[in-house]
Structures are given as structure tokens and as C-alpha cells.
């Protein structure tokens, strides 16, 4: 009974934290863009503007709900929900921290579900978020939206391949798909790289790490690969026709996907909740280390967005199919060789 209660508590806390983190990310996006552009950014609502996302949310709720003429009503409403739900669901297997406590001999771990197929789950469920984009783009009955949806589709399929191959390299090394075990393997002292570096996969798989990080940018439709939105060509891409809370849901979905992808990068390549040179660190310190690493990758998302220009669409496709896929394949071949030797 208490175990069930603990699980429910974990679900509530993790989902709540994820959605709040998405809200805070929107504020961070605006503040970081302001700093990079020599501005100050929103700092009026609450101390340092921390209540700005709340104000935005209230504003979104009171905006007019609008369904364009000729739109497919049900799909138009379903799309943002799908987009947000997929991103929220994929967080379920991320191990945020180690052992919290034990109840009646049952260990309570800091992740909602400890699936054997964790790595696959994130890719499978996270990949469904694309349906929100496609359906939203198609159901809007607008050519800009349709173009955004189509571009997002082709882009997602192209980059998902390379991304899965990068994950596969890590999985082949760790011999498991369970994310917690992947983290524990990186934590153990005898996995140290060259004897002194922490046993993180980034040192064993530098190529896969770089490819994976770039693929996460393409997967979450972020700059410099944001062809689904592409303000300068497609007005707003798939969410051109959206308003009010439906628009906000798309954004929650986007930021949640970014957070989940950052979590995946940290878990797969940067030792997750482990602390370098401190095996089996206490729960809170492990959690803090995890959040710190995720924050860095979230910052990277924002930093890159406000630094780099957008690619051209054919460049994106060339990069995906002619550079990333061969590199990922070579990487997995080399990994296979190294593992079998």
C-alpha cells in the first residue's frame, strides 16, 4: 500500500516538476536571448521575472479559442494534446536519481518506471510527438501549416535513424537497454576511462555523443533545424493557426521534449545521476548532479538557438542522410568490433 502511495507521489512530483521546468524554460529562453542580444529580458513579474510563465499561462487561458474555417475540428484539437502527452509520457523511464528509501524491503527508486526497455521507450513514445506536429499542420487547412508539418515529418524520420544508432552504440557497450543500469555501469569505479577520467560514455563514445546531441536538436525541432516553425518562411509553421491554450500546449510539448532529450543525453553519455569520483553518492547529491547536467544541456539548446542561423532544408536532408547516417553506422561498426574483441 505504502509502495503504491510512493509511486503515485513520484508520478505527481515528476510530472509537476517537468511541467514547471517547461514553464521556467520559456522564461529562460527569453532571458538568455536577451542577455545574448545585450538586453535584459522580462524582469517585472515577480523577483527577476520568475512569475512571468505564470502570467503568460493566465494570458493564454483568457485568449480566444479559434478554429479556422475548413479545418478538421477534432484533429485540430487533438494535435496539441498529442504533442504534449507524448513528451510528458516519455519522461516516465528517466532515472533522475538513485535510491530514495526502502519501504518494507522494496527499494523506492527515483524514476516512475524502471523498464527493461527504457532507452527504447523514450525514443518510441517521444517519437510520437511528431503526430501532433503533422496533424496540427494538416488539420489547420493552411498551406503554411501543411508545409511545416510535412517538413517536420521528413526531418524527424531522417534524424531518428541516426539517433537510434547512437543510442545503440551505448547499448551495445552497456549490454542493457535499462537506463538505470546504463547509469550504474558508468558510475562503477572499474569503468574509469584511462584509469582517471570518470567512466562516462562520452569518453568511450565521443562521436556518438556529438551526433546524438545534434540529432536531439533536429528531433525537438529546435534551431538550427526548426523547419517545422521556420518563422521567416512559414509564418509559424504547424502552429500558425493555433491560439490560446492549444498554442501553449504545443509549447509545453516542445519544451518538455527538450528537457527529456537533455535527460537522455545526460543519462546515456554523462553518467546520469552519478557523481564523478564518488561512487554511490547520497540521493540528494546525485539528484543535484543530474539536474545540473540537464540544466547545462537546456542552456545549450537556448545558446545554440540564439547563436546560429537556420539551415536550408536541402542542407538539413543532406546532413542527415549523407553525413550523420554513415558516421553513425561506422561508429556502431567500430563499437561492435571493440565489444567483441
Amino acid at each position: 500500500m505504502t509502495v503504491l502511495l510512493a509511486t503515485i507521489l513520484k508520478v505527481v512530483v515528476i510530472f509537476g516538476a517537468l511541467i514547471s521546468a517547461a514553464g521556467i524554460s520559456t522564461l529562460a529562453e527569453r532571458r538568455v536571448s536577451a542577455w545574448i542580444q545585450h538586453r535584459i529580458g522580462p524582469n517585472r513579474v515577480g523577483p527577476f521575472g520568475v512569475l512571468q510563465p505564470l502570467a503568460d499561462g493566465i494570458k493564454f487561458i483568457f485568449k480566444e479559442e479559434f478554429v479556422p474555417e475548413g479545418a478538421n475540428r477534432w484533429l485540430f484539437i487533438l494535435a496539441p494534446a498529442l504533442s504534449a502527452a507524448a513528451a510528458l509520457m516519455s519522461v516516465a523511464v528517466i532515472p533522475f536519481g538513485g535510491l530514495i528509501t526502502e519501504i518494507d524491503g522494496t527499494p523506492i527508486l527515483m524514476s516512475i518506471a524502471d523498464l527493461d526497455i527504457g532507452a527504447l521507450w523514450v525514443v518510441a513514445i517521444g517519437g510520437l510527438g511528431i503526430y501532433g506536429v503533422i496533424l496540427g499542420g494538416w488539420a489547420s487547412n493552411s498551406k503554411y501549416s501543411l508545409f511545416g508539418g510535412l517538413r517536420a515529418t521528413a526531418q524527424m524520420i531522417s534524424y531518428e535513424l541516426s539517433m537510434i544508432l547512437c543510442i545503440l552504440a551505448v547499448v551495445a557497450m552497456s549490454d542493457t537497454l535499462n537506463l538505470r543500469e546504463i547509469v550504474n555501469l558508468q558510475d562503477s569505479a572499474d569503468s574509469r576511462c584511462f584509469g582517471f577520467l570518470p567512466g562516462w560514455n562520452i569518453f568511450y563514445q565521443p562521436l556518438a555523443f556529438v551526433l546524438f546531441v545534434i540529432c536531439t536538436f533536429a528531433e525537438t525541432n529546435r534551431h538550427p533545424f526548426d523547419f517545422a516553425e521556420c518563422e521567416s518562411e512559414l509564418v509559424g509553421g504547424f502552429h500558425t493557426e493555433y491560439s490560446s491554450m492549444k498554442f501553449a500546449l504545443f509549447f509545453i510539448g516542445e519544451y518538455c521534449a527538450m528537457i527529456v532529450m537533455s535527460c537522455m543525453t545526460v543519462t546515456l553519455f554523462l553518467g546520469g545521476f552519478s557523481v564523478p569520483y564518488w561512487s554511490e553518492a547520497p540521493f540528494l547529491i546525485g539528484l543535484a548532479s543530474f539536474l545540473l547536467k540537464v540544466t547545462f544541456f537546456m542552456f545549450l539548446f537556448l545558446w545554440v538557438r540564439w547563436s546560429l542561423p537556420r539551415f536550408r532544408y536541402d542542407q538539413l536532408m543532406n546532413l542527415g542522410w549523407k553525413v550523420f547516417l554513415p558516421l553513425a553506422l561506422v561508429n556502431i561498426l567500430l563499437t561492435g568490433l571493440a565489444v567483441s574483441l
Binding site: 536577451a34 542577455w35 545574448i36 542580444q37 545585450h38 535584459i40 545558446w303 545554440v304 547563436s307 546560429l308
Partner: peptide, 13 residues
Amino acid sequence: GLRITLGKMFQKP
């Protein structure tokens, strides 16, 4: 490019 924008972040707005 990222180095340049990072430098700008710490300048006075």
C-alpha cells in the same frame, strides 16, 4: 560562434 555569443552574455546590457 557560440564563444562569441557567450562573451556577449556577460557584457553590460
